[in-house]
Design a binder for these strands. Structure first.
Length: 156
DNA sequence: CCAGGCTTGGAGG
DNA sequence: CCTCCAAGCCTGG
C-alpha cells in the first residue's frame, strides 16, 4: 500500500504528515491544509488529548548515523519534559551544534519531539516558527493534556 | 570540499 | 549582568 498524506490542525498551523501504517516519513508545519488523514495518535496530540506518540516509528531514527542516534535520544525525552542541546550531545557523543543542526533538519517533528530540546540559556530555536515550539511546550505542560497517559514529575 | 548551524562555556569589560 | 569568541563536528550543496 502507498504512502498516505494528510493534515490536521494545530492552532493557526496545519500539520502535514506523510505516513504508512505506524511509520512516519515526514511531518511539517504549514499554513495551508492538506486534505487527507493523519495517524490517530498525531490527531489526538494536536487536539491536546492524551496521546502516545511512542507507538509511532519515524524514518529519522533508522540507521546508525549520528543524526539517527540523535533522533533516537530525543525520542527518550518524556512528554512534558525538556533537555538541552548539550545534554543530547553528551549522550550521543557529539557537539551541541551538531544537535542543533539535526533538530533544524528533523524530518518528523512531533514524532521526534525536537521541541523538547532547548538551549541552556533559553528556549532555543524552531523552524518554521518559534511560536510553534512555545505552543507545543505549553500544551504539554498543561494538564490534562497529551501527556496525561505518561505524566508525572520531570518538572523542576 | 567547505561554510554554516535551533550551542556552549569561558574571558573580559 | 552583558557582549564577544572560538571550539567542535556533521551535513547539504
Amino acid at each position: 500500500m502507498a504512502i498516505v498524506t494528510g493534515s490536521c490542525r494545530f492552532g493557526l498551523w496545519y500539520v502535514h504528515v506523510a505516513w504508512q501504517d505506524d511509520l512516519i516519513y515526514r511531518v511539517r508545519f504549514a499554513r495551508v491544509e492538506l486534505p487527507g488523514p493523519v495517524p490517530e495518535e498525531i490527531r489526538r496530540y494536536c487536539a491536546g488529548l492524551p496521546a502516545d506518540l511512542t507507538s509511532l516509528r519515524s524514518i529519522a531514527t533508522e540507521g546508525d548515523s549520528t543524526s539517527a542516534r540523535i533522533y533516537r535520544a530525543v525520542r527518550t525525552v518524556p512528554c512534558g519534559g525538556t533537555v538541552t542541546y548539550g545534554d543530547i550531545a553528551r549522550i550521543v557523543g557529539t557537539a551541541p551544534r551538531v544537535v542543533g543542526s539535526a533538530m533544524a533538519r528533523n524530518p518528523t517533528p512531533i514524532v521526534v519531539p525536537c521541541h523538547r530540546v532547548v538551549a541552556k540559556t533559553g528556549i532555543g530555536g524552531f523552524t518554521p516558527d518559534l511560536s510553534i515550539k512555545e505552543a507545543l511546550l505549553a500544551m504539554e505542560r498543561r494538564a490534562p493534556g497529551p501527556c496525561a497517559s505518561e505524566k508525572r514529575g520531570i518538572n523542576r
